[in-house]
């Protein structure tokens, strides 16, 4: 395939993915807006007003970056895992596998689909958050960089989950039992300064700590971890996830007989 043909194939996958989640927007975009509104009301307004300041900001301002990041992670992950597993389940993935589209184009198409949903939901949740608090962005560059890198990483993770999944139950196990606990323990609702030293060190093993804190740095200018280290960790995880996803596609594991 020429570069031009590969680009056409890539855009076809991206368009199909965007069309898919826009068609079912009540299942893909609306739930995050509603859930995050509830978080803002309960943790930000009701409980937050009693907590006072955290990290030099009102509690509401402190939790908003983490909650936006939570929406990006869950949406980019669930978009790819649901879409790719769905196409595997219905065998429509064969449309792609029999075509000359290179594997890296297939992967990038699905990942960009997941990233676009993550970013769209981020915009929606950010707009909702403006009803509850003011946001002054510390660094637009860092914000955009972290959003794109995180959405890419979790789209790749969703792809890996989809390849291994055998049933629809399998695509909800990782988000329920791994992703959600890691997000909650990743410093969305608290500063790591509040933790005893031992638990603070344990928390540093959680990759979500770097994602949440790097994004918080972009928005508020404060972070529990160093920004270059956080960026390095996210980049490392992304490269590993991409390489593993390509290995799965090239070997045909669980996709070809």
């Amino acid at each position: 395939m020429t570069r031009q043909e590969q680009y056409v194939a890539f855009m076809t996958i991206v368009r199909k993915e965007i069309k898919r989640y826009m068609r079912i927007w009540t299942q893909t975009l609306l739930p995050s807006a509603i859930t995050m509104s509830l978080y803002f009301v309960i943790f930000g307004s009701l409980i937050g007003s009693r907590i006072g300041e955290m990290g030099g900001f009102s509690y509401m301002q402190f939790v908003v970056p983490g909650l936006i990041m939570m929406a990006i992670i869950t949406n980019s992950y669930s978009n790819v895992v649901a879409s790719f597993f769905g196409s595997k389940f219905s065998h429509s993935v064969e449309e792609l596998l029999v075509s000359p589209t290179p594997n890296y184009v297939i992967l990038m198409g699905y990942v960009v689909g997941g990233v676009s949903r993550g970013m769209l939901v981020a915009v929606v949740v950010t707009i909702v958050s403006l009803f509850f608090t003011e946001l002054h962005i510390h660094s637009y560059f860092v914000v955009v960089l972290i959003v794109v890198m995180t959405a890419t990483l979790f789209s790749l993770a969703g792809f890996i989950n989809a390849v291994y999944a055998n049933s629809f139950d399998d695509i909800s196990i990782v988000p329920t039992f791994i992703l959600t606990p890691l997000i909650y323990l990743g410093g969305v609702f608290y500063s790591m300064d509040l933790l005893p030293e031992f638990w603070a060190n344990v928390s540093r093993l959680n990759p979500l700590v770097y994602v949440v804190n790097a994004f918080r740095y972009g928005v508020l200018g404060v972070s529990d971890v160093s920004l270059p280290f956080a960026l390095g960790m996210i980049a490392l995880f992304t490269v590993v996830a991409f390489a593993f996803s390509m290995h799965l596609l090239n070997s045909g594991k669980r996709l070809r007989q």
Binding site: E5, Q6, A9, M11, I13, K16, R23, S90, E95, P100
Partner: peptide
């Protein structure tokens, strides 16, 4: 094929996969 997609989309997308 994806049972939720329209026939025209299924055929047009397949063309896209061939560039």
């Amino acid at each position: 094929f994806n049972m939720f997609e329209k026939g025209i989309d299924i055929v047009v997308n397949q063309a896209g996969y061939y560039g």
